[in-house]
Design a protein around this nucleic acid. Structure first.
Lengths: 257, 257
DNA sequence: ACTATTTATTACCCATGGGTAATATACGGG
DNA sequence: CCCGTATATTACCCATGGGTAATAAATAGT
C-alpha cells in the first residue's frame, strides 16, 4: 500500500521490488494461517479451503504460491527450522562452558516450542511430506540433536557437566522440550518465557557438576548481551533470484543448506 | 436368560465361554494389528482395508467388533491406559518416599513408552476421537499427570525431593518420557528397559535431595488423604448403553472406571 | 489503449476410504 | 434337518477434499 512516489522520475526498480515483496508477504500470510490451522485442527483435518477462506481467497489461489498441501506443511516447518538454526548458531558463536551453551540453547529452544512455528517442528508428521522434503527434515532433526549432544560432550570435557551418556541425556532434555510444543497454550497461566527459564534450570541441574541449590536463585548467569527481549528483527528475507512460479522458496532452501 | 440347562454330560457353559473367548481374542487381534498399523503409518494414512487385509479378512468384518475407525483408535488407547493405571496403582500401593514412588513410576512408564500400546497414549491425536471418548481420554491424562505431581509433592513433604514447582517438574519429567514414544524403535541399539532405567535416574536426580540412598528418611506419609490410591471423581462415563452388537468392550470400559 | 503477465475465480474431476445393505456361510441347539 | 445367531463376504454408496482446467480480473510495461 506504500506506492512510494519517487521524487521526480519513477524508477522501474521500485515497482518491481514492491511487487516481489507483496508476493512474499502473501506467501508468508498463507504460511501463518496454515501453521495456525494445522496446529489447531491437525494437518489431515485442516483443509486448504479453510486456509483460503481465512485469507479471504479461494483454494486455487493458493496454488500460485505453493505446489500443494504438503509443500505448505514443509515450508511451515522450514521457518521453524530457521529459527532453531539461529538459536544454535548464536549459541555456538557465543562463549561459555558446555553447560552454559546447553542452558542457553535449552532456554531458547524451549521458548520456540511455545510459538506456532516452533511447534510445527514437533507436531507435524514426517510422513506427510514428500520423500525429498522428508529427507531434509530428517537431516535437520539430526543436526538439532547433535547440537545438544555436542554441548553435553563439550561440558563433560571442560568439567561443567557430570560424566553421562551424551546421547541419552540429549534425548531426555530435548524430549522434555519437544513435549512443550504439545501442551503449551499461550492463553494459559504460564508465559512462554517463564516456562523456558524454568525448564532450562530444571533440565540441566541434574547433569550440572556444580550442584547448585535450586532455592538459591543466584542469577549469576546474567546474559552478557543487552536486553533485546523480543527477537523481532529479521523481518526481511530476500535473496530470491527468480519468480519461480509456485516453487519452494529459495529462502527456506538456502538456509537448509 | 439363556437356558441354564442342567448339564448331564456336557455343560453348555463351556461352548458359550469358548465362543465368547474366541470373540475376545479376535477383537484383541484386531487391536494389535490396528495399533501397529496406526503407529507405522499414522492414523489417517492407515486404512481399515489394510487392517483387515493383515488379518486375512475384509473390512466389513471389522464392524462385527467395532463401530468404526475412531472406536478402534480409542480401544487401542484404552489398553495403553489400563497399563498405565496398573503402574500407578502398584506404585501407589507400594511403600517408599515420594522420590521412590516417582522413580518407580518413571521407570515403568518409560518402559511402557517403548511398546505399542504405550506409544498409542502419546502418538494418537485426541481430535480423532468422538466427543465422549475424547473426554474420557482427557480425564485419564489428567489423572496420570496428577500421579506424577502427587509423588513430587509428597516427596517435597517427606524431604526426599528438593523444593520445586510440582506442576512444572511433572511436566518436565512426563514430557521427556512421553517423547520416548516418538523416537524409540525396538530394533535400535537400546533396549526398552535400558532406556527406562537410564531415564528414571537422569530425570529424577535433578530434583532428588540426596543423590545417595533415599529411603532412609521419615515416612511422613500421614497426609490425610481419603484412601491410598488416587480416587477418581467418578464421572460415570459409560452412560452410553449402546446396542449389544459391536459395542465397546466391557473389559476396557470397566477398567476405565 | 493494447498486450503480456500475474493473480484470482468458477466449475469441475476423481481417487480415496469410511461406512452400509444384502447376502452367504459356519455352527450350536432343539 | 431346520432354525437362529454370529460372522464373514461381495458389491455398493457417497462425502470429502486435494488438485486441475478454463477463464476472468487486476496490473505492469510499451
Amino acid at each position: 500500500m506504500d506506492a512510494r512516489s519517487p521524487s521526480s522520475n519513477e524508477s522501474p526498480w521500485l515497482p518491481f521490488e514492491s511487487r516481489r515483496r507483496a508476493r512474499d508477504e502473501k506467501r508468508e500470510a498463507v504460511l501463518r494461517t496454515a501453521v495456525a490451522l494445522f496446529l489447531e485442527q491437525g494437518y489431515h483435518r485442516a483443509t486448504l479451503n479453510e486456509v483460503a477462506r481465512r485469507l479471504n481467497i479461494t483454494k486455487p489461489a493458493l496454488y500460485n504460491y505453493f505446489r500443494g498441501k504438503d509443500e505448505i506443511l514443509f515450508e511451515c516447518w522450514a521457518i521453524g527450522n530457521e529459527l532453531v538454526d539461529e538459536c544454535i548458531a548464536e549459541t555456538s558463536a557465543g562463549g561459555g562452558s558446555g553447560l552454559d551453551k546447553l542452558r542457553k540453547l535449552t532456554v531458547r529452544y524451549a521458548e520456540l516450542m511455545t510459538a506456532d512455528y516452533g511447534k510445527s517442528l514437533v507436531r507435524f508428521d514426517l510422513r506427510d511430506l514428500s520423500d525429498d522434503n522428508r529427507k531434509i527434515v530428517q537431516s535437520a532433526k539430526r543436526r538439532i540433536d547433535r547440537a545438544f549432544r555436542d554441548y553435553i560432550t563439550q561440558g563433560i570435557a571442560d568439567g561443567s557437566v557430570k560424566p553421562c551418556d551424551p546421547k541419552l541425556s540429549a534425548f531426555a532434555i530435548a524430549g522434555s522440550l519437544n513435549w512443550i510444543g504439545h501442551w503449551f497454550q499461550p492463553d494459559g497461566a504460564l508465559s512462554g518465557r517463564a516456562v523456558a527459564e524454568e525448564f532450562a534450570i530444571r533440565l540441566t541441574e541434574g547433569i550440572a557438576r556444580t550442584s547448585r541449590n535450586t532455592t538459591s536463585k543466584k542469577k549469576a548467569d546474567k546474559s552478557p548481551r543487552k536486553g533485546n527481549a523480543p527477537r523481532e528483527e529479521q523481518s526481511e528475507h530476500h535473496a530470491r533470484t527468480a519468480a519461480r512460479a509456485a516453487g519452494q522458496s529459495k529462502r527456506a532452501r538456502s538456509r537448509l543448506r
